[in-house]
Amino acid sequence: MIQQTNTIIELEVQNHAGVMSHITGLFSRRGFNLEGILCGQIGDGSASRMYLLVNEDKFLEQIVRQLEKLYDVRSVTIRPDYDHTLFDKLHDLIKIGKPA
C-alpha cells in the first residue's frame, strides 16, 4: 500500500499522444520509482495536468530536474501539501487540482 514517504509531483504538460510515454519513459530509463499517475485535461484540452505519486527520497530533486527538461512539460511542482491517499479517490483529486 501507499507509504508515508511518498509525495506528489504536479505537472502541467502539453496534451498529445506521446506525452505520457515521455514521462513514464523517463522514470523507467533513469530507474526512478513511480507509484501512481493521475492525469486529466485542463482548459481547452491543449494541456493536461498530471499527478505523479513518487517516493520522497534522494532522487526527488533529480527527477524534478529531468522532468523540467522534457519538451512537453510546462511546469513541475512538488506538492507535499496534497494528501496522497487521494490517489485512491481519483475524482476528489481532480477537483482539488482544478485551476483556481
Binding site: 506521446g18 519513459g25 523517463l26 522534457l70 519538451y71
Partner: peptide, 14 residues
Amino acid sequence: TYGMTLPITKHNFL
C-alpha cells in the same frame, strides 16, 4: 520509431 527513440533523444516527434 517514436517509442524506440524516446529514451535516446533530446526530443522526438511523430
